[in-house]
Structures are given as structure tokens and as C-alpha cells.
Design a protein around this nucleic acid. Structure first.
Lengths: 334, 334
DNA sequence: AATAATTAATTAAACGATTTATTATATTAT
DNA sequence: ATAATATAATAAATCGTTTAATTAATTATT
């Protein structure tokens, strides 16, 4: 039962007051100052004894918990862990700890939020965009909030996301450059948001082909993609809004006897492990997931230090693989 | 900026001491007792004012934080999020919060552990088995510890894992039943631990074929599996210690012109999303990941309430898919 | 009726840091 | 020589809760 090392243990050994030790270790420059010699001694002793400040006491005194809540809808969905990992990594050398809040529906979101309040989290990072955001989260203005991975654009909240318009422009350009003119789009975004894709294609003089919404499930993706391919034999390219849907399109192509990439090019989003194990390998748009997490955590900490909320927009990039190739000659000009 | 409601606000409004309010709200039955009428008034007032206890103060006084640390090596590795999700779900209706500690190497593990100590976590759940366990974690016996997903068998620590021997027996039986006699094994376990596999096969009268160790990376898996297939043309089955390695074997089989499952049966472990998107679909041994997390959290909370450490062993099951089939006639008896 | 036991509470001392107000000494300015 | 200022530090209050020690009133037991 090794007793924890306290501030007073350090001060006793150093031969000074605990107030001085506290000020020195926290790098406070104020009324309380230590001589250079004393500074060195304090650091040395603290290190020797292995002093670790008690966050409960700090938090109590400073009315801050140094806790950041991370709210994630469905921890199992591939991109969440990466963002989370970035958040955690960014907090590693700070005083902040990351409290986990995974939820599957609105009730659980609300419950987690309440529990976060009780813990007195200083701020919250929401991964993705909870639909019920306004009901659950805005009503408490004491807790700063940053959204990561879902564009929000709220005055009071910070945001970190990958610029969707430029991401889709990358996709449009990749297809256009390779001579594709008939391109289907499988997405789990709402139909209204598909205009971004339409515009991206239009800037290359291409009118968007079939656009279909579907949940981010493999089986559903296969079914929907198969239907599209049967209805539209003129298609030479397929853009899917996730790698999972991208692999679903590959499966659908097999179902329909279409060869990839000879007859059909396929592009996904995420550059996940799925791309490399799929057959053929799936081209994809890489989004810097981990970086989003890191940037989000950094932004929140800055906001907790009094800086205003802002938005950080990152860029994606194209990762070309076997599934993306030149459009077949006979179709490209039809 | 609505000021937080404090214990003394409740006691002032109720007309009693804060000690009484504390005892009543926490359901403590001891020297401090309240009349039934007072009890009701206290609950009513606390609810009206929306009192939420300050966990920093509680934690400081009780030297308990009601915080559980979750240590995970590499949050992005497929099975960790599921376990984590189970842990978090189990804590949802309790007083406990889950503090996240993702790490990539020993230094980070030590650092996270230190930070957990500073926060005064009551207990820690380690997901997987950190190699440097003894150096980092055992030296602090004040913090209870449960291992999830990695068999440990430590007196002082709890453990939740899937019985590996019975898992491998399932694999051996699956192959034996389908007439396979020449079975390779690709694993990231140490050679010493492969005896479990040898014995599982022996109980069906089969002598284990090629056994090769490799990291859990796709490219490395492909290279090693390809080499094995070239060296051992008599092989009719391949057992891989993860779905990722399983898909690597599928890729290797393609490289060598072997058809799956006509020439070669392949079995993985995890029943992850990879199984369904691979071509052909990969048979796999399912391990209840989420359940492990839930059981682990429950065990730790019981231990924090004074119950002794124990081990919980769960069972896996076979999920048969296209990659697992009858052995080819001409090879099975050779 | 006197004593013991129970009920229903209060008071004050922790818990371990931070921070304000204060003090003592050394240095510089007038 | 004296006042003003800078330097180097300390003592004590504080944060919001829990809990040990204490008290006063009521009920039960002999």
C-alpha cells in the first residue's frame, strides 16, 4: 500500500512551503516566485518522489475537472475509433483526461450528457453529428463543445471537418480525367445534400447519373447497387460514400457480371483496411481521421483557455487503386 | 452562467445540515439518520433544485473517483472498440465513468497509467495483454485491475477471456469433419502457445502441418501465406489467427492459383466485417467481444465493492461461410 | 422511576490542491 | 540615510463533499 506522494511531501523534503511547490510545478509566474536554485530543487525532489498531483483536489479548488467528454454515436463504426484515438493522443501530455460516452440512440445520448454534467466535464467533443444535438447539448452553455467529423457551423461550438465539397470535387475530377461520363452515386447522406456531388460533376460538364440513398450496411449496399447496375447498363463508374458501400458495389458488380475496373470503376471514401483486402483493391478518398481528432481536442482545450470557437476545415486526398481506371472506349462517348 | 447547486443549497432550503442531506441522498444507513418526513423533503428539494453532486469533492473526500480507466493498445485494432463499447454500456447506469487510455508503446502505457493514478481511478480495465504489464501496472496495488480479452490468470487481477483451447478445438473439429488432413496455421501467437493448436488437431488424429508466426498485418500475412502454399502443395486447409490474416490467406491463394474453397478451405477468427466483404466470404470463429467488455466492467465494479478477483471464461462459436468446405477428394487421403 | 438504547439530528474536521494576503529580506532610487 | 521597489517566500483560507464525534430528545427495559 504505497501511499500517494502529496504536495506537502515534496515541500517537506525541499524545505519550503507547499504553495511554492505548487506555483513552481505549474509554471505560474505571479506574486509567488522561487529562486533559480529553489526551482531546480523542487523539480528534482518532485521527480525523485514521483509526485503526481491529485486531480480531484486540483479540480475542486479550480472548479475545473480537467475532463473532456467524448460523445460518439456507435463506437464500432470504423471511423470513430480513429478520431477517438487522435483525441486521446492529443490529450496525452496535457492535464486533460478523456471520458468516454458511446451511445446508440437519443435516450442514451441524453443520459450520457447528464452523466457528463455530473462529472463536471469542462468540455465535450461530439464525434459525428448527433441528430438530436439541439435538444440534448445546447441547453447547457457552461460546457464548451466541439464537433468533429460532422460539419455543423454553430456560433458557440467549434468544429473540425473535412471539406466535403472539395472531397467530392476530387472524386469528380478523378472520374472526369479518366473519361467517365455515366457515374452513379451511393450515399447515406440525405438527398438534399447530394447537390454538392451534382455541382462537383457539373464543373466538369457532367450531369450526375443515378443517385441513391442507403444505410451504411453491406447487405443493403449490395442490394441497392445491384438494382442500380441492372437499371443503368450505361454506367462506367460508381462512387460510394464509404468503403463499406464501395465493397458492396464491388460485390454488386460481380453479381451483374461486370468486371472491375474494365467495365466499371469504383471509388469509396475512407481509405480503410477494407480497400486493401477487397478484390480488386478499392480506390478511395482518404480523410485524415486521426488528425481531425487531434485538431478537435486542441481546439477544445484552446476554447477552455478562453479562446473563441472556430472551425477548422481539413482536406482529403485521392488514393488510387486497381478499382479506378480509364472508362471503356465504347461507352465513354455514348 | 447558472451557478451550480450545492449541497448546502439543498440543506438550507430543507432546513437541516448538509451532512444529513449527504447521508440521505447517498442512501447511507449509519449513525446519521433522517426521519421519513425529512427524507422525503430532502429528495424533493434536491430534485427541485436539480442538485448534482460535485464528483471532484466526493472523490477528494472519499479518495475514490468513481472513474474506471480503460487501457487499450491501439484503439484502431478492430476488436478493441467493441470491447470498449461493452464496457461503456455496462457503466451507463452506474456511478462510474470510463476514462480512455489508448497507447501504442510502453512509454505511452506508463504515461497513461501515471495519469490514471493522478486522476485517482478506482480501477483499470486492460484490453488485451500489455507486454510490460508487470513493470507498469502491478506496482500499484491500490488500483484494482481486470484484464479483458487476454488470458492472464493473476491472483490479484480479474480476467475475462474467450477460452482459447475450446476455440481452437472448434476449428480443429470444423476441419476434421470436412475431411481435411493437411492444415496450415498462420498466427501471431508465440510458437510456444501453438501447442494448444497441435493438441486440438491431435484429438482428431491429425498432426499439425505448417505453423508460421507473423504480425497481424495484411501484407505480411500475404507474403508468409504465399510462401507456405508454395512449399506445401498438399495443403487443403488454412487456419488464420485473425480475419485480417484470413483475408491475407485468400489473397495468397489467388496468387498461387488455388481456388477457395474447391482447392483450399480457409478459416479466420473474429467474425468481423471483413468476413462478409471478402471474396469468397470468410468462415470465422466468433468471439463475443462486446460481452467480454460488459462482463469485465461488471467484474471490476464488483471487485471495487469488495468482492474477490475472479476469472470469467466465455465460449466462441463457428460461423461457417463459403471459404470453408469439404476437402478435395484426391488430397484428403494422401 | 432510573437506566439504557434508539432515533434524529448537528458540528467540525478532514480530503489535497490553489490562491490571496501577508511578511521578511535584498536591491535600487531619491 | 530613507523610502520605494523588487525578490523570495509563508500562512491561512478556500473549493464541496464525507464522516467521526457529539448531542438532545424520545422510546424501551428493568
Amino acid at each position: 500500500m504505497s501511499k500517494a506522494v502529496l504536495l506537502k511531501d515534496v515541500s517537506a523534503r525541499t524545505g519550503c512551503s507547499s504553495a511554492l511547490v505548487s506555483a513552481v510545478l505549474n509554471g505560474r509566474t505571479g506574486r509567488i516566485r522561487a529562486s533559480e536554485a529553489m526551482r531546480k530543487r523542487i523539480f528534482k525532489v518532485a521527480d525523485e518522489l514521483g509526485y503526481v498531483p491529485n486531480r480531484n483536489a486540483c479540480g475542486l479548488r479550480m472548479s475545473r475537472s480537467f475532463l473532456i467528454g467524448a460523445l460518439a454515436a456507435n463506437l464500432s463504426s470504423s471511423f470513430v475509433p480513429e478520431i477517438l484515438s487522435g483525441i486521446e493522443a492529443r490529450c496525452l501530455h496535457t492535464n486533460y483526461g478523456v471520458l468516454l460516452g458511446d451511445y446508440n440512440n437519443d435516450d442514451e445520448l441524453l443520459e450520457r450528457w447528464t452523466s457528463f454534467q455530473g462529472r463536471g466535464v469542462d468540455g465535450v467533443i461530439c464525434i459525428g453529428k448527433p441528430a438530436s444535438f439541439k435538444q440534448c447539448i445546447l441547453p447547457s452553455p457552461d460546457i464548451k463543445c466541439v464537433f468533429v467529423g460532422g460539419c455543423v457551423g454553430d456560433e458557440e461550438c467549434g468544429g473540425v471537418w473535412v471539406d466535403r465539397a472539395s472531397l467530392l470535387r476530387l472524386a469528380a475530377q478523378a472520374f472526369a480525367e479518366r473519361g467517365h461520363r455515366h457515374i452513379a452515386y451511393l450515399t447515406n447522406y440525405s438527398p438534399a445534400e447530394c447537390d454538392v456531388w451534382r455541382n462537383a460533376l457539373l464543373s466538369h460538364g457532367i450531369v450526375a447519373g443515378s443517385i441513391r440513398t442507403c444505410h451504411n450496411f453491406f447487405e443493403e449496399g449490395v442490394a441497392v447497387a445491384t438494382a442500380i447496375l441492372k437499371e443503368h447498363p450505361e454506367l462506367t463508374a460508381f462512387f460510394a460514400d464509404s468503403d463499406l458501400l464501395g465493397t458492396a458495389v464491388l460485390a454488386a458488380a460481380r453479381n451483374c457480371g461486370k468486371r472491375v475496373p474494365e467495365d466499371l470503376s469504383v471509388l469509396g471514401i475512407d481509405d480503410s483496411i477494407l480497400c486493401r483486402i477487397s478484390q480488386p483493391e478499392l480506390a478511395s478518398l482518404r480523410q485524415p481521421r486521426r488528425e481531425q481528432g487531434e485538431k478537435g481536442a486542441e481546439l477544445l482545450m484552446q476554447m477552455l483557455d478562453g479562446e473563441p470557437a472556430r472551425n477548422i476545415v481539413l482536406q482529403g486526398e485521392l488514393v488510387c487503386r486497381a478499382s479506378l481506371a480509364q472508362a471503356p472506349e465504347n461507352h465513354s462517348e455514348s
